[in-house]
């Protein structure tokens, strides 16, 4: 063990430049990787939160609005149509809850939502619509209800936030997978770097290794310092990446984003911890595997 430690130390010093390169590559790639994981969790949080809140809104015909749906022009939806709709929606097994919002309520909510904005006065009470607000058991399964209800008389249109949110989440997902893919490329580069470093080290220490093999040193004894060397480099890179991630979460999310966009749920320390833990696992695996592969190739007994 003493031997392994002192050899590791001298190896690290001898290869200071290349070790530094490994550390920096590891740092950047692991930071990206960790950021990708945090981003994935953030997206999931938002998804959970928003999809949870999403209601399918069934807007009813109103005299003022001429357009669309199954409306008789210039007429409000009749009470009979409303009753039928209510019954149909309530019977649908996908539906968890439904409530009726009158145009007065909708107007009040609109006024409240935009109370500080000039938009407030852009709509009159008459332009608002009565609607059914439907909450689904599984917010992802909205297509069934939509197709059933959209054909019924008295319905002006069905508004479903999925149509807006789905593309947003799709792009967010693409972005987050892109980050992870990019980091995987960089991590691959780091692994190759480690492999090459080990190979170079086996050349510079060729005579020593030759003697060790000749006098019967065990494979582990010969490989130990190399393993430790790349493990240490990778762990330093991982610690730097962890620091970067923690700082990033603290500065970007806790200090800034959280205060500017209070309505959203943001990732916190538990999510950061998951990301940091995966960073360490990846760092360890990624340093040990190329070391063993190239050591097995170049330290052949």
């Amino acid at each position: 063990m003493r031997h392994a430690l002192s050899e590791t130390w001298s190896g690290l010093r001898r290869n200071a430049g290349i070790t530094l390169a490994v550390i920096m590559t590891m740092w950047v790639s692991l930071s990206l990787f960790g950021a990708g994981i945090i981003a994935a969790q953030q997206v999931n949080l938002l998804k959970d939160e928003w999809y949870d809140k999403i209601e399918v809104t069934v807007y009813l015909c109103t005299a003022k609005l001429q357009t669309g749906g199954n409306c008789d022009p210039g007429q409000d939806a009749t009470q009979e149509q409303k009753d039928r709709l209510q019954a149909a929606i309530t019977k649908n097994p996908e539906v968890e809850a439904v409530y009726y919002e009158t145009k007065a309520e909708a107007y009040a909510q609109f006024q409240d939502l935009f109370k500080d904005s000039p938009i407030k006065d852009s709509l009159t009470l008459d332009e608002m619509q009565d609607s059914f607000r439907v909450k689904l058991v599984d917010p992802q399964q909205y297509a069934g209800l939509a197709s059933q209800v959209s054909l019924m008389p008295g319905v002006q249109k069905i508004q479903d936030l999925h149509q807006i949110l789905d593309p947003v989440f799709k792009w967010l997902g693409a972005l987050q997978w892109g980050t992870i893919a990019l980091s995987v490329l960089l991590l691959l580069a780091a692994a190759l770097q480690i492999g090459t470093t080990i190979r170079m080290a086996t050349f510079t220490r060729g005579r020593e290794i030759g003697i060790m093999r000749l006098v019967g040193a065990s494979n582990f004894y010969i490989m130990g310092p190399f393993l430790l060397e790349s493990l240490i480099a990778a762990l330093i890179g991982a610690v730097c990446a962890a620091g970067t991630l923690v700082f990033g979460v603290w500065f970007i999310i806790m200090r800034n984003a959280q205060h500017t966009l209070e309505a959203f749920r943001w990732v916190g320390w538990p999510e950061t911890l998951i990301s940091v833990a995966s960073v360490f696992v990846v760092a360890i695996v990624l340093s040990i595997i190329p070391t063993i592969i190239s050591a097995r190739r170049y330290l052949r007994v």
Partner: peptide
């Protein structure tokens, strides 16, 4: 087997023409 090679070599000393000292 390969893993038993070290044990074999501990029973053998080897000297060569180029002394191979460190």
């Amino acid at each position: 087997p390969e893993r038993k090679i070290p044990a074999l070599r501990r029973e053998i000393g080897m000297v060569s023409q180029d002394f191979r000292l460190l």
